[in-house]
Amino acid sequence: MKKVYICSDTITGIFSAIYDAWKESRDREAGIELRGMMDTQLFCEYAEVTEEERKAAAVEKLIQNHLGYNTYWDIYHALLSAHPKKAEAVFHVMQTARTVGNSKRIMEHLSDPDVACVFELSRKVANEAHQFMEFIRFRELENGVLFSEITPKNRVLTCIADHFADRFPLENWMIYDKTYREFLVHPMRCRWALVSGECLNQEEAEKISMAETEFERLWQGFFQSIAIKERKNPICQRTHLPLHFRQDMTEFLPIREAR
C-alpha cells in the first residue's frame, strides 16, 4: 500500500517529510502531501510528519553530498514555489537519482517528468526573485525603517535577502510578503531574519516620513514627465514590467498629499 507523508509547506516541514519517506519508503512507491493542499487518494496509508531541524539538516546534507550543490539549489528553489506537488516531485527526483550513472547530473534527465517539474519550478522561482530585486520599492517610515510590501506568487524572500542585505548593510529595513504573511527583517549591521506568524500593523506601516512623501511625489512626477504619449506601447511595457508587480511600485500608486 502506498504511504503518503503529510507535512507543512515549509522547507523544514518538507525536508522532514522527505527524511521519513527516504528512511521508510525510498525503495517503493510513496507520496508527500502538503497540509491544506491534499488530494485524498484511495488505498493509501497517511502519516503525519514530525518536523525537526535535525531531519531537515540531514536531508540537506544528503542532497548536497550525493546530488551536488547545484541540484540542491534547484530543489531548494522548487520547494519555494506555490505548486502543490512540489514536495512529491523532489522526492521522486531523489529516488530516480539512485538509478542513474552519475547522480550529480540528475537535473539533465529532463525526459523524466519529475525532473522536468523540479527544473521548471526552480526556474520560475529564480526568475521571480530576480524581478523583485529590480522592482521592489522601499519607503521610509517615521521611525526611520525602510519598509516595502510585495505580493509574490512564490516564497522569494530568502532568495532576495542577501541581495538587499549587501545593498543596505547600515539600514534597518523590512520587506513584507502579503501573499504568505512573512517578514524579511534586517537590523542595522546584523544578519537578516525571516519572521512568520506575525501580523502587519497597517496603521504603523502607513506612517511615512515627510521626506519620503516629497520624494514619492518627485519620483512619480519624473516617471510621468519622461513618458512620450505618441510612443506609448502598453504591450511592450508589460513585457518588461508585468502588471503583477505594479500594485506595490511607487510609480503606479496614487500620489500622496504633502503634509
Rank of each mutant, 00 (worst) to 15 (best):
V49W: 11
E51N: 11
E53I: 12
E53N: 13
R54D: 11
R54Y: 07
R54G: 04
K55T: 02
A56R: 09
L62R: 11
L62Q: 08
H66A: 11
Y69N: 13
T71L: 03
T71H: 05
Y72W: 05
W73I: 03
W73H: 08
Y76P: 00
Y76W: 04
A78T: 04
A78D: 04
L79W: 01
P84K: 02
A89I: 03
V93W: 00
M94P: 01
Q95K: 05
R98L: 02
T99G: 01
V100I: 15
V100C: 04
G101T: 01
N102P: 00
S103C: 01
I106N: 04
E108K: 13
P113K: 12
A116V: 04
C117V: 00
C117S: 02
C117Y: 01
V118F: 03
E120V: 05
K124T: 10
K124L: 12
K124V: 06
N127C: 12
A129K: 09
A129Q: 08
H130P: 07
Q131D: 14
M133T: 15
E134K: 15
F135A: 14
R137S: 13
R139G: 09
E140C: 13
L141V: 05
N143V: 05
N143D: 15
V145M: 15
I150F: 09
K153V: 14
N154A: 13
L157W: 03
L157S: 03
T158Y: 03
I160M: 08
I160V: 13
D162H: 05
D162R: 08
D162T: 04
F164P: 08
A165E: 10
A165M: 10
A165N: 11
D166C: 10
R167L: 06
F168L: 04
P169S: 10
M174G: 03
Y176G: 08
D177Q: 11
D177E: 11
D177Y: 08
D177L: 10
K178P: 01
T179L: 12
T179E: 15
